[in-house]
Nucleic acid binder design. Structure first.
Lengths: 202, 202
DNA sequence: CCACGTTCTTGACGTCGTGTCAAATATGGG
DNA sequence: CCCATATTTGACACGACGTCAAGAACGTGG
């Protein structure tokens, strides 16, 4: 058994950074190999393919991201928790310069293509799983809020609505990149869901 | 002046069909050239690059799509118009087998990349323009509804919210492909915007 | 302590896609 | 009728993906 000469974790970090900035199709294994100080062939040996490498790097990111969301969704009033949730979401895909967008949404639209050819399906499932898990987190927060009388609607439907809005924000971010507007939409959504939109005006 | 030997419009149709099914990066000019019965070099001569060809084909689609939306948004009560709007939206990206998704969202996430390198910027503007124009249409419908007492909120904010939801639906469609659920979210959004969500239960 | 198998590494290869170029070709205006 | 102009065509250079066989490094068992 010959031991690995490179740091598996470091490769994942370097790879995900590139994928996030340039997209999966826009990133070449040569780029990653160069930046990570690894031979291209070694990447194929260790991960199998570019998509598999992306998937592993993405799972790593998804775990961290989910933990951060969970934390944001567990402090203070329902309104505060939802605000923190949207804040973290928007801050995440406005990070970097230029902003790198939402990796989940970008990856999903790039790999969750219609003409499924093998590994794309695994990728689609990974994305779908993260989206589902986030939805569940939001739903829990709403359910807790319902018990405390902070929210009077259907938690499942509202959670689904909220996750839909976050995905929409990820798309609009690409189109306009106008962060204040994204935050306005988020605030409006919170108001709508909590039933105060028409009271607050704007 | 030697005349073109191919039908410019037909090439755009063939190209957009491929782009829609397989994405821009997933479609090769050889594919398009073969299907359209044109030499690859002629495409470069006529359009300049793959992205430019996509852009021209997309503009063509966008015009048609905008007209259809406009029509859907001009018949009956506000609720009926919004229902028709969402229906057209969802039907559009559930079309084809397998469903091809929303070309605007797919194209935007694919080409509206962060590391802008020239033509990507034009593409981003084209997508942003369509999104803006759709938002304006929805806003007009809401304003008209406000005058008739069908809607009591802020048309601009509500229109932005609605377009955000449609973009989110385009993303969720890729993740789950569960059309009934998409339609539920759409119905819920209409209820929310019209201020009936908590009355209707669900 | 050393040989051997197992795993990793390395570089070469085949294939495909993009974009460029020059030569060949077809047209219509002067 | 001829020539400027635009299009077509095939060849080319380049980069990326993925495969493969040969070489290198390790540790395990004799």
């Amino acid at each position: 058994m010959r031991p690995r000469e490179f740091d598996h974790d470091n490769v994942l970090r370097v790879a995900f950074d590139q994928f996030w900035r340039k997209g999966v199709r826009g990133t070449s294994l040569s780029d990653i190999a160069r930046d990570a100080g690894v031979q291209r062939g070694s990447l194929y040996n260790a991960f199998g393919s570019k998509e598999a490498l992306f998937l592993e790097a993405y799972e790593r990111y998804a775990g961290d991201y989910l933990l951060a969301l969970q934390k944001a969704l567990s402090a203070g009033s329902l309104r505060k928790r939802l605000t923190a949730f949207f804040d973290l979401t928007i801050t995440n895909f406005r990070s970097g310069s230029p902003p790198r967008g939402c990796p989940t949404t970008r990856g999903l639209m790039e790999l969750g293509a219609a003409e499924g050819e093998g590994l794309d399906e695994d990728a689609r499932k990974a994305f779908a799983s993260l989206v589902s898990r986030i939805t569940a987190l939001v739903q829990d927060a709403l359910s807790a809020g319902a018990e405390r009388g902070e929210f009077g609607g259907n938690p499942a439907a509202a959670a689904l609505h909220i996750i839909t809005v976050t995905r929409g924000l990820a798309v609009l971010e690409r189109a306009f990149g106008d962060e204040p507007q994204l935050r306005k939409i988020a605030a409006h959504t919170i108001d709508l869901v909590l039933g105060r939109a028409r009271v607050n005006g704007q």
